[in-house]
Design a protein around this nucleic acid. Structure first.
Lengths: 239, 239
DNA sequence: GCCCTGCTGACAGAATACTGTCAGCATCGA
DNA sequence: TCGATGCTGACAGTATTCTGTCAGCAGGGC
């Protein structure tokens, strides 16, 4: 086995096992312990965040699960604009994430590109209630990905309050505000809700299977306005 | 010199010179031509886009000026959302750029991450006139970066038409539409314009120096509504 | 047609890297 | 204190890579 391949495999092993002692790695890779130490030293020298602790073993730091990406300046320009959108209107978690992403981007671009890419005045002004609008979006995003039922109190525009258990299906951003598409267990039908009108949002342990009757495809099917992509109003919205 | 260092230096040489023959590279690096060919083959095998043409020489393809970036999954999630924003509302050039960026991202993420990252239903519905709105934005973006005066015909809402020479200072996206902040040479004052109401937009050869009286800072100073970040109307807009 | 250049294969000697063994020190947790 | 583990240095034999030389083919520009 070529050394380069072995180094790769060492990282892969750490990726899957999280913890491994030098002896274990040596056995797995079929080399001596001394060679493992040398390999680890080389990898660390190349920037791989492997941590070794005496009495414990080796551990790969989080965040190294993805390979590096190479973007063109045009692509970075687009991503940078997108990052501003997210900063202005995304939920705080994602906004923070794109913040660190932009820091990484800024660190590597040469000065010549900097002006066209970052100094170009391209603004997505946040509105007064932008942060408020995005308040619950992060939680909803996770709930959708994990297919968990959520519970919340909801106050409609006319002041009427209700408690809901809903199965969140998708998030929509309409230029000023978010809505979440969901199957409402109270009404036994599809409904849209505005995250900023929710309070006491809780993600329940209960999960759901989006294949059984209540899924986003059906929601979209019932929403002519959405398919044609021209509506600005949201039918079924609990407003 | 270690081989790895030489490979790096070869790329650096091509970065700065754009063109170089194998013989030139051999002399620069202090090795034989044959070795250069081997090095180039290795680099190409590692994904470096070097193009060799018989009778011409070697050339490094554009887009390789930037080092690779390593993002966490959270950061990629944020950038992915931003990419959707740009696809929906950005100008066609940037939309295409984020498209290829997303292709690169999709290519590397493991299946486990794919669902949370790409399959999460997170939509930024484009509106009927979204493409139309962004029509001239790409051109304006370039003009701002290059500080070039632009000329266009403008039709206001009341049907009144005019021809303008303006110095574009910045682009704003308001959730549904774009405006460009500019110094209007006709009115000798700051004005905002909607790109979708421009026709026959031309970037002139004439450049301007944003330090001389008409710059974005002054524009912002005169725009209380913008500083406080709460307005949805745009004073001075030629509507 | 001619020159310049990229590109490939083969080969042999030189240079380099790789590896295991041994020996010892440092650090962490029990 | 003790054991487990990380970590470092030295050394020598082996394996691998690297490199230049030579020879030839192919494609682009003049």
């Amino acid at each position: 086995m070529r050394r380069a391949d072995r180094l790769f495999q060492l990282v892969q092993t750490l990726r899957t096992r999280r913890f491994a002692t030098g002896q274990q790695l040596a056995t797995t890779l079929g080399v001596s312990k001394r060679t493992v130490y040398r390999d680890v030293a080389d990898l660390v020298g190349s920037g791989v965040p492997i941590r070794g602790e005496a009495g414990v073993g080796y551990q790969l730091e989080r965040g190294f699960e993805l390979p590096p990406l190479r973007f063109t300046s045009e692509e970075l320009e687009g991503l940078a604009l997108g990052a501003r959108f997210v900063s202005a209107w995304g939920d705080p978690e994602l906004a923070a994430a794109v913040g660190t992403a932009m820091t990484k981007i800024e660190a590597v671009i040469p000065d010549a590109l900097r002006r066209a890419l970052l100094d170009t005045p391209l603004f997505t002004p946040g509105f007064e209630r932008a942060a408020e609008m995005a308040a619950n979006v992060g939680v909803l995003r996770r709930a959708i990905a994990e297919r968990r039922v959520i519970h919340f109190g909801y106050t409609r525009g006319d002041g009427q309050r209700s408690q809901r258990d809903v199965r969140p299906l998708g998030l929509y951003f309409w230029g000023r505000s978010w809505t979440v598409a969901a199957w409402c267990e109270l009404r036994a039908d599809y409904r849209s809700f505005r995250p900023d009108m929710m309070d006491e949002l809780v993600v329940l342990d209960r999960t759901f299977d989006p294949g059984e009757g209540y899924n986003l495809d059906q929601f979209i099917e019932g929403a002519e306005w959405l398919r044609e992509g021209r509506g600005t109003r949201t039918p079924g919205l609990e407003r």
